[in-house]
Nucleic acid binder design. Structure first.
Lengths: 342, 342
DNA sequence: CTGAAAGCGCTTACAG
DNA sequence: CTGAAAGCGCTTACAG
């Protein structure tokens, strides 16, 4: 029967469990168990199956397993960027947390686009994932609808949610933006600018924190904001510091919404002969590796992105296993790194 | 029959093609065709199926499709690092090249480990990928064996191969290392150090290029090499420039095997009051974004990593489709970026 | 501990 | 252009 199957035109040519079973002289079922639940098979048969597996070079077919068990062992992770070190560290945390569990991790890059996110979620849903890890809290209505219908467990990463039902791991982007602004105010700065790019939800929340602090201190001025939708780069930071200075020449400190922009701002100041921090204080957000090393070193917010990925994956795994997590919202906090630039 | 199926305990609860077909009043086959080969179905039936799909919110089951068609529509990509911008750009190229083709891209991070690579390839083979994209030419014998047995098409990225049978997209790491060293020699430097970290195959090939040039110029000296297995970081570059200077105090130029190390070296020189390039010339490899902007700007080798990913994916796609590529080895070259630091 | 039967949700191959 | 049957390679649910 196995041989006939192999002769039929639809056979893939791969070694199948049935072939392994035949070689080991057991039923397919037993071969299956010997591989996936070895404890339930006698030592003797287990050995014979293992040997057949080795001799034949058997590789299980994941599609067949997924179809039969309706368990895909797939976890999809969506991040808005792969060129941003923040998210590659999130991914590293996710991978480390799931490493031993035989999960297949599907990494999706939404490129900061709701459309891309929708497309990726649609594609990934075809793989019937056991769970999903999403970046951010804000998703298009369609995405929310699709997610609800699919009944796939979802954990949101990066920011804290106000909805207690939502599973979330991150820190408050608003509070971090507020804390950095308070730091600059307490240093005696009065004309504190904010440079924001990409304008993703995290940047917008940081800007809200900045505005809250400026308003409360009576320092708010719309001229002190430079917001652009382009992706954050060093080159853009260099350009925007110029724009800020043109727009608010008396600006004495700039809070950049991330370190890339801040690096560009500092390099630009160096070229223009603007002393940092004495003439212009500059700070960033995320604490990338270069920030501690450059001269002047960069004052910034340290963010726990590796741990966000790690804890989010643990939380998702627990939920997939049917556990009721004690804490559905995990706030990992942030750290203000006061250095030379501000 | 469909209803009974839904009542059986093994049903997943998902909407199936059979349900769509029933709703549209056609056979499952026709529903299948209406979705995957719409041209082969009459307008009337196609519309009815489409409507049923929408009403039911049908999502195709990829595992079932893969199993029935023995076509996974999966392409696996293995890179040694996700924190290294070089490889995230390679991935961006791969994604862009495959974007329209409905391929599912499996991204694997080998962390510069042969063991991890072996493990990932084993896992990915379970998904019966249509093709694989690998970083580098050097793989463990076991991996080569597994790959050969699997008969999965493979394209190697990053370096050029001497084996004409191998599908390869990249540039010569050896020649690039050689060119940078020649540049420093022609600038009049005599005591040119080489700093290498991670010691992956690309770094080793660059070092060989350096040695060849030094040897030919009669400048070779083992004291001028600092090679360590740790991952490349800015912090490590800062440390190793100190080690180089301790080991070869008369060193007048340093070729760092990548930009991260070079950045660290420059920052360290700034802190120690060593003038770059007048006292010590420093150059790197890869031309990361910061390299053009920092002060002094970094002399380095520009590498076409986005295009490597893009062209490698195109080549793989062509091979999967059964085409005979005109060129099995695509050399994308490199560019020496002469700037302020050397 | 072991196995024969049925089924997971699709597509292939063949007819009509 | 349309469809009934069989099969992809595994696991579940039941028996023994």
């Amino acid at each position: 029967m196995i041989k006939t199957a192999a002769n039929k035109s639809r056979a893939s040519g791969r070694i199948t469990l049935a072939m392994v079973a035949e070689r080991a002289g057991v039923a397919t079922m037993t071969a299956s168990r010997a591989i996936t639940q070895p404890d339930m098979v006698s030592q003797a048969l287990r050995d014979r199956v293992e040997q057949a597996v080795t001799e034949l070079g058997y590789v299980p077919n994941r599609a067949a397993r997924a179809l039969a068990s309706s368990q895909s062992k797939v976890i999809a992770v969506l991040v808005p960027s792969l060129s941003n070190a923040v998210f590659t560290e999130v991914l590293a945390g996710v991978q480390d947390a799931l490493d031993a569990d035989d999960y297949q991790i599907l990494i999706g890059n939404t490129r900061y686009s709701d459309k891309e996110e929708e497309k990726l979620i649609g594609t990934y849903l075809q793989s019937n994932p056991d769970g999903m890890l999403l970046s951010g809290l804000s998703h298009s209505p369609r995405v929310q609808q699709i997610l609800t219908n699919s009944r796939v467990p979802v954990v949101s990463m990066m920011d804290m949610s106000t909805d207690p039902a939502q599973l979330t791991v991150g820190f408050s982007q608003f509070q971090a933006g507020h804390a950095m602004t308070r730091y600059l105010i307490e240093k005696g700065h009065k004309r504190i600018g904010f440079i924001g790019a990409q304008l993703d939800e995290r940047t917008l929340r940081r800007a809200e924190g900045y505005r809250r602090a400026m308003l409360d201190a009576g320092l708010a001025d719309i001229k002190l904001e430079v917001m652009v939708g382009e992706p954050s780069t060093i080159a853009l930071g260099a350009e925007l510091v110029g724009r800020m200075l043109a727009q608010a020449p008396d600006c004495d400190a700039i809070f950049c919404c991330n370190d890339d922009l801040a690096h560009g701002a500092i390099y630009q100041c160096q070229r223009r002969g603007i002393a940092v921090p004495s003439q212009l204080a500059i700070c960033g957000f995320n604490d990338l590796p270069a920030s501690a090393w450059m001269n002047p070193s960069l004052t910034t917010i340290g963010t726990p992105r590796y741990r966000i990925g790690f804890e989010a994956a643990r939380l998702l795994r627990a939920v997939i296993k049917g556990e009721q997590p004690a804490n559905r919202q995990i706030d990992l906090g942030f750290t203000l790194m006061a250095r030379e630039s501000a």
